[in-house]
Design a protein around this nucleic acid. Structure first.
Lengths: 150, 150
DNA sequence: GGATTAATATTGCAAATGCAACAAAAATGC
DNA sequence: GCATTTTTGTTGCATTTGCAATATTAATCC
């Protein structure tokens, strides 16, 4: 059984750490870039879905989003149809920040894939998508209090 | 350019979240399992190297290790040759906890690889190892204050 | 050998993270 | 239509996380 967990953990922490350092220039504190890019790409998203996408606790997402709002990167708008939800939209400031984040992420991605052929990169993406799909089932199960048999 | 960053981030956060929930039974708080497994597998390790292995800030590692010591999972021993370093060793309690962590990690790994052939799993590991090697160069560079050109 | 630099460890702060608990609106069941 | 459950959002509290700054020993440079 190949142990891919540790590799994935190391890669994720290293890249996240790099991003957090580099995004300080944009006045974004730890983790906020994760939320902002997704809100820019899918305006109107609600925070519950965003937490699911990112795989983070609901309350963590709530506070990160609150900070983004306080610092003028995004705004929350009430929905007339459904008074329970608040839709998230980037402000002009948020939209201005987006290209910077995208460029940094693209660079990190290129660094990560260095030395791999086009074909290998495609394979990596495909395998990772499958792994992610597998893992998110368990994540939702355990998050809701489920107990895994091992 | 395939965007593997987000997939890796999602997978890592989901698995880490699952582990943190499941290891509460072992009285391990957030992240501590990462350090404990490695100390069990490489007794005598020093905390600086451990932080590098895990890809986490030195001070974060310092405090996680301090907690593990306070709760009796590991102990720090002074080195006679080099008075600068402290070597880390699991206590009997730590060693008792190790198999539980290993079993959980193995299970998560199996879940992650579900639906992949033996060959695909091997490929995934190989690609991830390469990606990790690529990424750790930049991590160390940026951690030391280096500025990446993007 | 003495001065400078690097490696290792620690502490002070400020901030993010996440569980528990709560609230309110919507969806579902009968 | 009403009771129950689910969805979505928030706040309190304890904890981890990480940057900056400091201390101490070891290693390197002339």
């Amino acid at each position: 059984m190949e142990d891919i967990l540790r590799e994935i953990g190391m890669i994720a922490r290293a890249l996240d750490s790099i991003s957090n350092i580099e995004f300080k220039e944009q006045e974004l504190t730890k983790g906020q870039y994760l939320y902002l890019v997704r809100i820019c790409e899918q305006p109107g998203l609600i925070q519950e879905k965003l937490a699911e996408m990112i795989k983070v606790d609901r309350t963590t997402a709530a506070r990160a989003i609150q900070k983004l709002e306080q610092h003028g990167f995004i705004e929350k708008r009430k929905d007339e149809r459904n008074r329970k939800i608040k839709r998230l939209f980037p402000t002009p400031k948020g939209q201005d920040t987006y290209p910077f984040i995208k460029r940094e992420n693209d660079y990190s991605n290129a660094v990560a894939l260095a030395g791999l052929s086009e074909r290998e990169a495609k394979t990596a993406l495909k395998l990772l998508q499958q792994i992610r799909a597998n893992v998110e089932v368990d994540w939702e199960f355990v998050k809701k209090g489920g107990r895994r048999p091992y």
